[in-house]
Design a protein around this nucleic acid. Structure first.
Length: 446
DNA sequence: CCCCCCCC
């Protein structure tokens, strides 16, 4: 690994303009937070000196980056959100954590740093594993996986559901162990196993097979040979254990087709008549976005890039307006966000101007409050385990525009709102995309 | 749709 980049220790909260070259040393399974519905995924990143930092992905970023940050691969990373871990969670405060999101720039580097990774592990013999049962210690083993069972749900002692997936491993001396895949630890090229109170071994995360183990997969040991020859592995996403599965060979392994439960949506929509105003002047009124899916981008304005979110190969980075404001009517107020067109309409500005604006805005540079009532179409998202909703303004209608409009039931907001369902697709599309529809759809196919 | 944050 080169040395023209910063090291993990060089990056603190507030450090700007840094780039660190790292290897993805561990990749844990995505999990659901205990006290909120948030999904998160932890990674361990290692620099050239073997220092590590915990990196975390949240929500939709988990799937967006699943093929972007591969176990054992090397990357240049910049512009991650760097902060100290919450003292509430960590005994020792001051530990650094990176949050990886859409604005984090990640560049793959074609370097093989697996020796660096392997040098940081010591492997435990299968024979010694019983010693570690119930110890809650993390240890590493090295072996070959010869069977992967379907995932199943178990209840933990604390009443929480978690997924378990059993694996059968064999070591060089053909000794077999059964391992449940569980919420715990992973390592590179070996499997890091944690022993839990119910006396099974658990692993977590992703791993790779070491070449030398692949080569002794076909041995003359009867039972192992049998298992290997009978099993077919689905390996559509080789780096991801959960996508690998042994195809069952016995009738009892097949399940009858049953319930698919729909997820209840918490979204609610409202019409509100009132006034909007910016209360927090010092905010960012734009973000760099993908012109295809509107999601955040780490690229520079105008650059063509492959979008990790929509997978569009020739996405263009363009600014998109956003504003956090307060919505009031005679009965009260809510805070709400507007993005894209409603933000531009409210601010009486556009994304490019907002992007180039360096000073905190004044009423001269943009509209910060409304003189007259306007009509807002607001989406509320109820937050589980939280009393407050988040609100978003989907579009804004000036009452003068609908005065005398006989076409009731349709919002005459063509140049104000974002495209919404009850506008004709042909009319709304042309308003917000400079490209033709054909260009849009051909991009999505790639 | 999109932003922010977000966990042990």
């Amino acid at each position: 690994m080169g040395d023209k980049f910063q090291l993990i220790h060089d990056v603190s909260p507030g450090t700007t303009g840094w780039t660190v070259k790292v290897v993805v040393a561990e990749k844990f399974s995505p999990k659901v937070a205990q006290r909120s519905p948030t999904k998160y995924q932890n990674l361990t990143l290692m620099d050239s000196e073997g220092s590590t930092v915990q990196a975390t992905l949240y929500g939709q970023n988990i799937t967006a980056f699943q093929d972007e940050l591969l176990l054992g691969k090397t990357y240049l990373i910049s512009n991650a959100l760097v902060k100290e871990t919450n003292a509430e969670y960590k005994a020792k405060s001051g530990e650094i954590q990176w949050t990886i999101s859409g604005r984090t720039r990640i560049r793959r580097v074609e370097e093989n740093n697996s020796n660096l990774l392997i040098s940081t592990y010591s492997f435990t013999d299968f024979e010694d594993l019983p010693k570690y049962m119930d110890s809650n210690l993390d240890i590493s083993v090295i072996g070959m996986i010869i069977d992967i069972k379907p995932r199943r749900i178990i209840q933990t002692r604390f009443g929480k559901e978690c997924q378990v997936q059993d694996l059968v491993l064999v070591n060089k001396r053909k000794k077999l162990i059964l391992i449940g895949k569980h919420l715990k630890v992973t390592s590179f090229n070996g499997l890091s196993i944690s022993t839990k109170a119910d006396s099974s071994f658990f692993i977590d995360g992703e791993f790779e097979l070491v070449e030398e183990f692949k080569s002794w997969g076909h041995t003359n040991s009867e039972i192992i040979d049998n298992m290997i020859s009978e099993k077919h592995y689905l390996t559509s996403t080789p780096s991801k254990l959960s996508s690998k599965l042994s195809v069952p060979t016995a009738e009892k392994d097949f399940t009858e087709i049953k319930n698919i439960q729909g997820l209840k949506t918490a979204k609610q929509f409202f019409w509100i008549k009132g006034k909007a105003s910016v209360k927090v002047l010092n905010q960012t009124y734009w973000y760099m976005s993908c012109n295809n899916c509107n999601k955040i981008s780490s690229e520079n304005y105008g650059d063509i890039y492959p979008c990790v979110f929509c997978k569009c190969t020739d996405a263009k980075a363009i600014p998109r307006a956003k504003v956090y404001m307060q919505l009031t009517d005679p009965t009260g107020y809510i805070n709400a966000t507007a993005i894209g067109n409603p933000a531009e309409y409210f601010l009486q500005s556009n994304a490019e101007i907002l992007m180039n604006q360096t000073l905190i805005p004044t009423a001269a540079s943009m509209r910060l409050s409304m003189d007259e009532d306007e009509i807002f179409y607001v989406k509320a998202i109820t937050q589980e385990l939280s009393t407050d909703c988040k609100f978003e303004i989907l579009f804004i209608v000036n009452p003068s525009q609908i005065a005398g409009d006989k076409n009731t039931g349709k919002a005459p907001v063509e140049h104000i709102g974002e495209p919404i369902k009850f506008l004709e697709p042909t009319t709304k599309r042309s308003l917000f995309h400079s490209d033709t529809d054909d260009a849009q759809s051909s991009k999505k196919k790639t």
